[in-house]
Simulated assay, not measured.
Amino acid sequence: MVCAGDVLSKGIFPSVRWPTQHIAPIVPVVFAAGNHEFYHSSIHECLRQVREASAHPNLHFLENDVVKIGDVAFVGGTLWSDFRLFGRDPQVAMSYARSGMNDYKRIKLSKTPFLKFKPIDAFRKHIETRDFIACELRKRRGQKSVVVTHHAPSHVRLPAGFVTIRLRLATPRIWKTSFVRQGPPCGCTATFIIETITSLAQQG
């Protein structure tokens, strides 16, 4: 089972508990956190704790990670925004996001030391995940790979009036994501099928 996040909004543990208890004993579970998993919590501590506590051999948590199940490699992470949709000035987009998005009011980057989560942190995390995915796909060129991210890699096939991060080219043939408003409910996955596999690059 692939779960691409936004299951609950009280930290990662409640979101992974149910699939760990009920699905992982039967089939492997691949889980990438959504932004809501970090609400009322902190990113650094949540990621550290979930890695330390993910003891079930069939629960695979991805945050710049890869796991191979059979002959298929699952690569991914949350994939935050780079604020460059359609080449717009990311500084302007980040300014609007900081004052208008709940992520930057409800998420902490760290509890100790206390650090607020800011758009620049999301931008840096986007770059980390984008580069990790690109590197892993290059290493696995010609092999079976599925990318799992919470945020979508492209505006293509998203509902009219709503767009997310745009990547210029490269993806694997299958990319699982859950952040699609007015489409599948949060916690479910949408599938992007991209026929041309080249190199991963940001728009801008």
Rank of each mutant, 00 (worst) to 15 (best):
G5P: 07
L8A: 11
L8P: 01
K10M: 07
G11E: 00
F13Q: 13
P14A: 07
Q21I: 09
H22V: 11
I26A: 07
F31A: 00
A32T: 15
A33W: 00
G34W: 10
N35V: 11
Y39K: 02
H40V: 01
S41A: 15
S42F: 11
E45Q: 14
L47Y: 08
R51L: 06
P57G: 02
N58P: 00
H60R: 07
D65N: 12
V66Y: 02
K68E: 12
K68A: 04
D71S: 11
V72A: 04
A73G: 01
V75W: 02
G77N: 02
S81A: 06
D82A: 12
G87C: 03
D89E: 09
P90W: 06
M94P: 03
R98H: 08
D103C: 01
S110K: 04
P113L: 05
L115A: 13
K116H: 09
K118N: 03
R124Q: 14
H126L: 03
H126G: 01
I127E: 13
T129P: 01
R130P: 02
R141C: 06
G142F: 05
S145R: 11
V148I: 15
H150W: 00
H150C: 00
A152P: 15
H155A: 13
H155F: 09
R157D: 15
V163T: 14
V163R: 11
A170E: 13
I174V: 12
T177W: 07
S178A: 15
S178R: 05
V180T: 15
R181E: 12
P184S: 09
C186G: 09
T189L: 07
I193F: 14
A201D: 14
G204F: 07
G204H: 09
